[in-house]
Design a protein around this nucleic acid. Structure first.
Lengths: 216, 216
DNA sequence: GTCTATAGAACGATAGAC
DNA sequence: GTCTATCGTTCTATAGAC
């Protein structure tokens, strides 16, 4: 039998595929059910492994959650960075491009049931997460995306497309006006938000942002 | 023995004080622990009643939670309406008054451990709350406060203090710029936010709001 | 005497851990 | 697969109010 068949390597020393399957399953189930409601049984079933395998890889439920939280935060940050690059690198129509970015970002973060959608669970559990882990999650996730956005806005300002005194503040304004409202409406993805509602919220948000930071 | 002693009336027909004690305790414990972590035992202990009494009054844990959620939403709405009236009824210094209102409102909503601070628990459980109950909570809480704020802003605009085309949109801007950031930073009250951090966030938010809706 | 409320034990199911 | 703890819920017995 060839080692190219993953099933044939079931007893091998390292099992990164199983670990990854568990991580994806955990992300999905934690994101869908929340921390306390998500049972290790359900995660094991979703991952197609036994509970014992989960405990061997991650120790206990809390460590599993925290590990997966940090990993998916980094993945989502990269996804958002890709969206920003796609929509904001070369500006064609400023308002349209900002809107397209904001819509795609909101969809990425607020998507329900996706494997990187446990942001709402992390927020719901913030009070029970060790402060250093919470800080690490913030740094790998929301803060990293915030910095990336601030850099883009500063660059657009340097190109004469926006007025930006403080890129950090501008990024805050952009996120508040084009994302926070949608996040609040959808309870961070727990309740679906219609495409048209999202688009309306984002569009008016971008308009307000552009009034705060107009082309000079 | 006198009936003025509450303990002496233990077997009386109606016991609104006990019901209220349970409601307050439930609000506190649900707000502090979240829905699934809060045990009926803990609520009973906090309220100083037996578990059975809770079931007699509220049926089951879920009904208890939903009842208390709706009741406290209304209470918080009234508190915020009072704050708005106090700070916005007679304007002395527009920016200072708006800032004071926003600071007090954020403190009221994000106060940790207070008996009306289970907003974050409701948001965390939004996906598990029956849609009609969630809608009722929104109507009694956030939406009612939103409308009240919109009315105040419209009135200030009529007095020539602000430019407001759409009071609804203006209220949205105000909340996003002066509240949502603080709520996000503190994870809706799960993690304490320092007074200076709150004040800074709110102050810059009010400034942005006034740039969007300047005195004509 | 009957009714209601209470306290506390007990039950059954679930879920984390090994 | 098993063990054990926890938790939501129910049952039983006691006591005061009308």
């Amino acid at each position: 039998m060839s080692t190219a068949n993953p099933a044939a390597t079931a007893g091998s020393r390292r099992m990164p595929e199983k670990r990854q399957a568990i991580a994806r399953a955990a992300s999905t189930v934690f994101g869908r059910e929340g921390y306390t409601r998500a049972s290790v049984d359900a995660i094991a079933t979703e991952a197609g492994v036994s509970k014992r395998t989960i405990y061997n890889h991650f120790g206990d439920k809390e460590k599993l959650f925290l590990s997966v939280a940090l990993e998916t935060a980094g993945e989502l940050t990269e996804i958002i960075a890709g969206l920003a690059d796609r929509h904001l690198h070369k500006i064609v129509d400023l308002e349209a491009d900002l809107t397209a970015f904001a819509v795609d970002r909101a969809k990425a973060v607020l998507s329900v049931g996706e494997h990187y959608a446990l942001g709402r669970t992390i927020r719901a559990e913030a009070g029970n997460i060790p402060p250093d882990v919470l800080a690490a999650w913030l740094a790998a996730g929301p803060l990293a995306s915030h910095r990336d956005l601030a850099d883009h806005l500063a660059r657009l300002a340097a190109q004469g497309l926006l007025t930006v005194d403080d890129p950090d503040l501008a990024a805050t304004h952009f996120t508040l006006l084009t994302f926070s409202g949608a996040a609040d409406q959808s309870f961070y993805g727990a309740v679906p938000i219609s495409d048209t509602a999202l688009r309306t919220t984002v569009t008016t948000g971008v308009q307000a942002f552009l009034r705060l930071h107009p082309r000079p």
